[in-house]
């Protein structure tokens, strides 16, 4: 079991003693065995470890996409682990940006539409303001001239850059990235990582990323090695 994390407002995200079981009956596996963790604004934390050790499960629990069987999760000191589906959904919209390994863009939409999608749900900006912000974000990730392209007309690296812009769209406090460079070549991996960390640091966002790539992990502010459902 990881040592408990002291409660503090300086953390964008923290969890304590997370337990998670997956599967049913005899196939039921204790995937997370008391994970505790905290992410600070402006810092990049890498969770590393072998396949099946519980890295992604931890990330999905932190991102409120899944619910722990035991333990607590706080987003900016608000306890979210026991909250309703609606509250967790609202918290995802406002505080969390996701970048997945396979970019997960909406294929029927343009790059601009994809970036605007979280903003449309949050509903804080007008249509024109959303479009302006989406264009600015796409420009930041180097896709200023491809805003109206369908995502199917972009390369893998470009699609992942759109995913990063989308994750940043609502200016969330936390960026969670699940192997964001997992399906990219070395050159594109470096570009994506640099982009993600630069923009997050500029905006004071806490970045938690899961990676198998030791080069990427060593460039993070903190590395959290994981084994058999626990931080080592």
């Amino acid at each position: 079991m990881s040592p408990p994390v002291q409660a503090s407002t300086e953390f964008a995200l923290r969890c304590e003693n997370l337990h998670r079981y997956l599967g049913q009956g005899e196939g039921r596996v204790h995937v997370l065995r008391g994970v505790s963790f905290a992410a600070r604004p402006g810092k990049v934390t890498a969770i590393v470890g072998p396949s099946g050790c519980g890295k992604s499960t931890t990330l999905y629990l932190l991102g409120l996409l899944d619910q722990p069987d035991d333990g607590s999760i706080w987003i900016r000191d608000r306890l979210m682990s026991n909250s309703s589906d609606l509250d967790r959904t609202a918290a995802r919209c406002e505080h969390i940006g996701f970048v997945f390994q396979f970019h997960f863009l909406m294929q029927e939409f343009s790059a601009l539409d994809n970036v605007m999608m979280p903003m449309r749900k949050l509903g804080r900006l007008s249509d024109a303001e959303m479009a302006d912000r989406a264009r600015a974000l796409l420009k930041d990730v180097g896709l200023g001239d491809k805003t109206h392209r369908l995502t199917t007309q972009l390369s893998g690296g470009e699609q992942q850059r759109v995913a990063i812009a989308r994750a940043l769209a609502n200016q969330p406090a936390i960026i969670l990235a699940d192997e964001p460079t997992g399906n990219l070549d070395v050159k594109n991996s470096a570009i994506i990582f640099d982009l993600l960390t630069r923009l997050a640091k500029e905006n004071g966002q806490a970045v938690v990323l899961v990676t198998h790539n030791p080069d990427i992990a060593h460039r993070c502010d903190e590395i959290k090695p994981m084994r058999d459902g626990e931080f080592c």
């Binding site: 959904t89 609202a90 995802r92 919209c93 996701f98 997960f104 909406m106 979280p118 749900k121």
Partner: peptide
């Protein structure tokens, strides 16, 4: 997959 993306972005079950 798209449903999961939308849910991760904050779209509710009702959406």
């Amino acid at each position: 997959k798209e449903i999961a993306i939308l849910r991760s972005m904050g779209y509710s079950r009702r959406d």
